[in-house]
């Protein structure tokens, strides 16, 4: 009974919230600030031509720096939670599935490289590319071609942290330009591509790691 009234209470609160929020949204006029204009105006100096990438890695690159930190941190926290356990031996899947893996993974890598390269001028970028790469690793793991992680060794830890460390180093190095992450317009494109490449590798490793760390006990 108590539980029932709690449900009713929460649901009615939620409905009321949606009602008022919806009404308030409808009342809204035009915004005082329109960021599209400055985004477009500085696109030439940003080093990329795709506005979302410009926002992500240049205008608000600091957000992205911290975001990568969050991701690395999540992996770290998971490591701390699950502790060390020997990875169980991988059980190979049926050859048909393995064939799929062998077929799909190179394609995924190609797509990832394409997305990374496309990021500068059209939708795509390090994160999407990294996610696709990570998916490739997950696929390989699922069909039994890639073992789960028992614990990341030095090389792997280095790879996991490299993208973030590179980003951090570039961000700090650019302090010489006057402030954190202040790209000189001439070098912006190259630097962003450099950062994105590093991030792609590390993001792929981290995202794959999220799965590979967790699923190691799955096959027991």
């Amino acid at each position: 009974m108590k539980r029932y009234s709690l449900v009713v209470l929460v649901l009615s609160l939620a409905s009321a919230f949606v009602f008022f929020l919806g009404r308030a949204m409808l009342e809204l006029g035009p915004t005082a600030i329109d960021l599209r204009a400055p985004v477009a105006a500085h696109l030439a100096e940003s080093g990329v031509t795709h506005p979302v990438t410009a926002v992500l890695l240049n205008y608000r690159g600091y957000d992205t720096l911290l975001e990568i930190a969050v991701l690395l941190l999540a992996l770290l926290a998971i490591l701390a939670v699950v502790g060390e356990a020997p990875a169980s031996p991988t059980r190979a899947a049926h050859p048909v599935l393995q064939a799929l893996g062998r077929l799909a993974v190179p394609l995924m890598v190609v797509v990832a490289v394409y997305l990374l390269w496309a990021g500068a001028f059209r939708p795509g970028g390090a994160f999407q590319a990294g996610a696709v790469l990570a998916a490739a690793a997950v696929l390989l793991h699922l069909v039994g071609l890639l073992p789960g992680w028992s614990k990341p060794r030095l090389g792997l830890r280095f790879g996991l942290a490299a993208g973030f460390a590179l980003f951090l180093a570039v961000a700090a190095g650019l302090l010489t330009q006057g402030s954190l992450l202040q790209y000189p317009p001439a070098a912006a494109g190259v630097l962003i591509l450099l950062i994105e490449s590093g991030l792609t590798v590390s993001l792929a490793l981290i995202l794959a790691g999220l799965f590979l760390l967790l699923s190691r006990e799955a096959e027991a």
Binding site: V52, T53, L115, P123, G124, G125, F127, Q128, A131, V132, A134, A135, V138, L142, L207, L210, F211
Partner: peptide, 16 residues
């Protein structure tokens, strides 16, 4: 951009 991320993450990783 978000569609790509959502497709890769939502359908691929989170689902798995």
């Amino acid at each position: 951009d978000i569609g790509l991320a959502e497709a890769a993450i939502g359908a691929g990783l989170t689902g798995a």
